[in-house]
Design a protein around this nucleic acid. Structure first.
Lengths: 350, 350
DNA sequence: TTGTATGCGTTATCAC
DNA sequence: GTGATAACGCATACAA
């Protein structure tokens, strides 16, 4: 059906329909100024020859590839599929194909991918949690086709952006923990390059001040979005002289690491330690995990990013960069509970 | 850096180097017959103008796109990233880009994706767990560029294939359970279209006969690879008059559903029920999950599939289809244990 | 409304 | 070893 070697071209269709190639092109690309009669003849010929325009050639000529690039920091994070599905939703509708790149959070890999995408003539790019601060990255975003940033950006905020309301999310989480009587709350911060992680941290610090919680510097642990990072952070924090009675993770995968560390140290959840995640991945609701977390409407965010991108692609220049912030919602499950009486006793040593 | 409008073309390089475009092309694509001197001049010009060939144009002319398509049934399955990474490993080395498609296990979506990929001129396609039986699918695979199937195929087995040794995996699992004294073993079978699922089932039946286990038809439950399916299957089986004392899941995600159902029914694992998964996703090793499972070398399989595909792409026709089967290994964790004395008592009703 | 000619950036062909 | 020139398949001015 699709062997390139003996595939019908627009010329074949033109001949079959007794019209000129340009007319066929006009008809097929939906341009006005083709008589209904000709259009019908062309459609018939197309049907008969099973003609489909070659995207390659079309893209070369028209500078429109009907392909959009999606760069993701970590395919293995369960949040990713949700974003992708949202993007797919609109991509399919717009007859676009997705080019996927996994960057491992490394800027060099990201730049290489971006270069490959640009050079392939994608119509636009969705950057999910990618580096945006460097000159190199900036230059690419400006020189190339439209870009929409998701969940990470850098000042000055001159790009289209889809993000989440981290402020209310973190505040809700802290308030929830405070209501349970927690006053020593640990916090695993996400990657330093992540604007989202930075925002969450700053809001957390605000909340600590606002609610009069322990502002111990040791309660903020540097990390990233991985399970390993959560494991490591919790292992350290829980074995410190005065361990926290609750920890807010950088995200759900991170929280799984925290839970694992607690498990290995014999620290019970939520008895000895409350844990709050961020994202609300599907696993969080499993009985064995039962993670209280801050839900992110990931699919909707992906969809919004793609919609915005399509608008940029189809529209004239000029509109100022847009910023779409999605609300978050605290989903309370079994990983959070009342703080044990005083400041809870020292956990078992390793 | 990459604005298409004022991007250096091969003509610019040729002018800069004082040579002809075709010579530049020859030099850049590594063809023999270009003097070292010219080559150096060309390289210098390329450097100076920051020239990079446009893949679009290159593909149009040379019929080689340096892009390969990857179709996956379910991006949300944690196994998927591992396969993809394996594919990526070799794709990057070969300077290929990945075009990703998610098919949801639906054949119509799959065919649409395949059409899009073919029509985009990808050099090859890796089909992970896709439909391969229909005429339509077959025709596409034959008419188009090379295809490599992973984890699912249909007779007659005339395509390149990368799979796993399901036989020894299932046998090891059953033996393991038998050693624990289990004699009523449940089995959730994967999607009917999956050759892998079918093979596992048939081996399971063999094993049941071989070890003289209960051959109750109710112990084989139809399902697929999802968590929901596992949940549903386990909910039914555990509430049946004579529930199994162990269940082998269609895969790890499926096992999570089984564990969840047990959790909700108050059935303890492994006290009342042993569970064995298939895949060994990262989560399986978490203390809260602790799933005994049959490990699949996913990344290696992805890599092997990509390597095989590259060979097909670069080689002349003629070699017979190849089949690469990877060994599996039973990883014993905490979700399996001794069978409770007799045939275990009825579980709590919902 | 339709047709003609040309260009998109590259590689392939075949002279030189 | 090198260089004109013609494709690749389509879209776009512009002429008819």
């Amino acid at each position: 059906v699709t062997d390139r070697s003996k595939r019908a071209t627009i010329y074949d269709v033109a001949r079959e329909a007794g019209l000129a190639p340009s007319t066929v092109s006009n008809a097929l690309t939906g341009k006005a100024g083709v008589s209904p009669k000709s259009r019908a003849r062309i459609l018939a010929a197309v049907e008969k020859l099973d003609y489909r325009a070659l995207p390659l050639a079309r893209a070369l000529r028209s500078r429109r590839s009907y392909a959009i690039g999606v760069l993701i920091a970590d395919v293995a994070n369960p949040s990713f599929p949700d974003f992708v599905r949202g993007i797919e939703d609109v991509a399919m509708r717009e007859r676009c194909t997705l080019l996927l790149g996994n960057t491992d959070g490394r800027e060099d890999v990201q730049l290489a991918h971006m270069d490959a995408l640009l050079t392939r003539g994608v119509d636009g790019i969705v950057l999910i949690s990618q580096h945006t601060a460097s000159n190199e990255a900036r230059r690419m975003m400006q020189a190339g086709p439209p870009c929409v940033l998701v969940q990470r950006r850098s000042p000055p905020f001159t790009e289209d952006y889809v993000g989440s309301d981290n402020r209310s999310g973190i505040l809700a989480a802290v308030r929830h923990l405070v209501e349970f009587g927690h006053s020593r709350i640990g916090f695993v911060r996400g990657p330093v390059e992540s604007s989202t992680a930075a925002e969450r941290l700053s809001v957390f610090r605000e909340a600590v001040a606002q609610f009069g919680l322990d502002a111990d510097a040791g309660l903020v642990y540097p990390g990233d979005y991985t399970t390993e990072s959560g494991f490591h952070a919790a292992t350290m924090m829980l074995q410190a002289p005065r361990p926290p009675s609750a920890i807010i993770a950088s995200n759900d995968m991170n929280a799984l690491g925290i839970i694992e560390a607690a498990h290995q140290l014999g620290v019970r959840i939520p008895g000895d330690l409350s844990v709050v995640g961020f994202d609300d991945i599907a696993l969080a609701s499993l009985g064995r995990i039962d993670l209280t977390t801050i839900r992110l409407p990931k699919r909707e965010m992906g969809k919004a990013a793609a919609e915005l991108l399509m608008r940029r692609i189809n529209a004239e220049e000029g509109e100022p960069p847009q910023e779409i912030i999605f609300p978050t919602r605290l989903v309370i499950r079994g990983s959070t509970g009342p703080a044990s009486r005083p400041s809870h006793s020292d956990s078992t040593s390793s």
